[in-house]
Design a protein around this nucleic acid. Sequence first.
DNA 1: TAATTTCGATACCTAATAGTATCGGAACTG
DNA 2: CAGTTCCGATACTATTAGGTATCGAAATTA
Lengths: 219, 219
Amino acid sequence: MSMTNNDLPVAARGRKRDPERDVAILEATIDLLAEVGYDGLSTAKVADRAQAGKGTLYRRWPTKTDLVLDAVAHMKAQQIDLEALPDTGSLRGDLLAMFRPQDGAKVDRILRAMAGVVSMISQVPGLADTGDYSIFEPWITANAVLMERAQARGEIPPTADIALAAQIIPSMAAYRALILRVAIDRDLLERLVEQVVLPALGESSFNPSPSQDGMGQDG
Amino acid sequence: MSMTNNDLPVAARGRKRDPERDVAILEATIDLLAEVGYDGLSTAKVADRAQAGKGTLYRRWPTKTDLVLDAVAHMKAQQIDLEALPDTGSLRGDLLAMFRPQDGAKVDRILRAMAGVVSMISQVPGLADTGDYSIFEPWITANAVLMERAQARGEIPPTADIALAAQIIPSMAAYRALILRVAIDRDLLERLVEQVVLPALGESSFNPSPSQDGMGQDG
DNA sequence: TAATTTCGATACCTAATAGTATCGGAACTG
DNA sequence: CAGTTCCGATACTATTAGGTATCGAAATTA
């Protein structure tokens, strides 16, 4: 969605557009989005925080809405890499490894920014239909991938409702971030994994009596 | 929080304040909150929709923020009555009975209004600390009460993490309402109760052995 | 060097809106 | 009836903010 056009064989005289200004403006946008929300965010404040002129901003994005949507996409791109998911050998370990300890502040900023995005959805018509703005969707997808791997290992039964279980932790994170305005912590994450997600998948960790036939393997 | 003062022994001459205007304005506020969010909502639009003058509105609430907060409180008061919770005999039945079929449209309106409130939280400083705005909290409390009754009946073990399990359905509803903009449906509710909430409480519906003794009283 | 484009900064225009004031009329009280 | 308060409607003020235009300087190329 960036407006840098290096594809046309035009002469391209004059000073070159600085791509560093793009990221500075996008980062400032995410900061303000997390702090004051979509409506509290003004383009003047964004330009000010990014040490940029409003002209530089509007040369790149035609409207405030485009800017914010691009900022969310930029934020999303920095997030979960589906190619580099944890692989600890157990689903429990994988789910816990999704949360690195130093990520606390980062995750908090992202979730607060999502709270700012929520207010945009109510005001930009047709935006709710795309879903492009959601940072939770890749997270859910990553959880589903980890669960499918566990299923392939025989760690959880093939009847497990992965689509549902993969939503539990992100939806709880959304609730806390958007409503309670509190970040998820390690203790809660562990309780969710052990007492909610794994039992929902039929792994029942605290009631270990898989006396049925079959695939009672864990690792 | 209403401003009707019938408590002072003042002469009270002149035309009486019409309490019907209060509810008309509050309902119009909730409608617009659900449609366009906190910032998209203007006091002029509220007065227009309620067939009221702006003077009538500002005679009752000093600021737009006070109006919206009172509207949320009004919405909350119409909701879950902790004195009249369902009592079907089983936790599964109680949780499902919290959702009456005809409530679909109502619940949808409420959750959309909550999405509008989220944008207010980012802009009114100190609001996040109170939590008064949240419609989910009474819902969570109601779930916890139902679960405690089931625990007293011996239906779920005393070690069950009720505080956590009571949050699962409301947080999923919040995620869907705020991010996906889709209401929760009966099918999803049943899957959540059977596959997530009850297993999280250690009831393990697919491994039914409640052979413990029990103190089957509720109150 | 000369032309061109981007840069940060800032003045400017215009639309929307929170909140106030006023008006004619209706309801209530003494 | 007279005084008072509420009512819907509407005009008004002041502020905020999205977006545009301009300026001098820096960068880039011919």
